[in-house]
Design a protein around this nucleic acid. Structure first.
Length: 233
DNA sequence: AAGTGACTCAACCGCGATTGT
DNA sequence: GACAATCGCGGTTGAGTCACT
């Protein structure tokens, strides 16, 4: 946390010259080692600012402009599955950055989803008496740890189920091994974890893991063979 | 044309996790 | 194990732009 102490570091919008310097530096030395970038590039910026500028703006293949219908649809479904894991969501939207996704969500999608939820709530209010409404908030699946150490056997392509992985506080006791069967057939998962990992609906059924999420989860997990596919670039 | 409120998005901040010594 | 340095993430801010009056 030394960055805050740096004095005289330029802030605010980036100039074209600064962009050029940063681009040249990354092309020359590659991505990473961000603490060296300001010095190497001759930029009076902190490493955080450099990293952010590269990742959100200068990096090749970044898609700009409006989100397509399919992208928004995927975003909504991934958000339902992952919560505010913007980097993970962005990872599934080619050319989009986590900042883009977050901004788009906060300005466009959130409103739509909220009004949609309000509509649904109104419908529920019409159909069900307040005392009978026992739904609980959705619990989001939180893949953890966010990153793995280089020493981790999973990183080297070994079995995912044979290694110990921490479980976030968001996952209830009783499903510590949710990750062990994550890639198995989801029916098995749900049966095993019925009362712990997933929210319970009015009649004891699952609200979260419906067919819609089944498809998106399959899509999300299908490409991954090891945990490193989820957590490491 | 001027004022102003809403909106967008690039950038900053704080913090937890990881890595190196 | 303790500590410092670094990385990466999500939340927040604020300048610029747009739409409306």
């Amino acid at each position: 946390m030394m960055e805050g102490r740096l004095s005289g570091v330029r802030k605010g919008a980036w100039s074209q010259t600064e962009d050029e310097l940063l681009r040249e530096c990354v092309q020359l030395y590659g991505e990473g080692k961000w603490h060296l970038v300001p010095q190497r590039a001759g930029l009076n910026r902190c490493r955080k600012s450099c990293r952010l500028r590269w990742l959100n703006y200068l990096k090749p293949n970044i898609k700009r402009g409006d989100f397509g219908e399919d992208e928004v649809d995927l975003m909504i479904r991934l958000h339902k599955l992952l919560g505010n894991r913007w980097s993970l969501i962005a990872g599934r939207l080619p050319g989009r950055t986590s900042n883009d996704v977050k901004n788009y969500w906060n300005t466009n999608v959130r409103r739509k989803v909220q009004s949609h939820n309000r509509d649904e709530e109104n419908n529920n209010n019409n159909n069900v008496k307040e005392s009978e409404r026992t739904w609980k908030p959705h619990q989001v699946i939180k893949p953890v740890p966010r990153a793995l150490t280089k020493a981790s056997s999973m990183v080297h392509g070994k079995s995912m189920s044979s290694s110990k992985v921490g479980v976030s506080e968001g996952v209830s006791a009783g499903c510590e091994n949710w990750w062990e069967t994550l890639l198995d057939d989801k029916e098995d998962n749900i049966t095993v974890n019925n009362s712990t990992c997933f929210p319970v609906g009015k009649d004891g059924s699952f609200e979260l893991w419906n067919e819609e999420l089944d498809s998106i989860a399959s899509e999300f997990f299908a490409e991954a063979e090891t945990w490193s596919d989820f957590f490491l670039n």
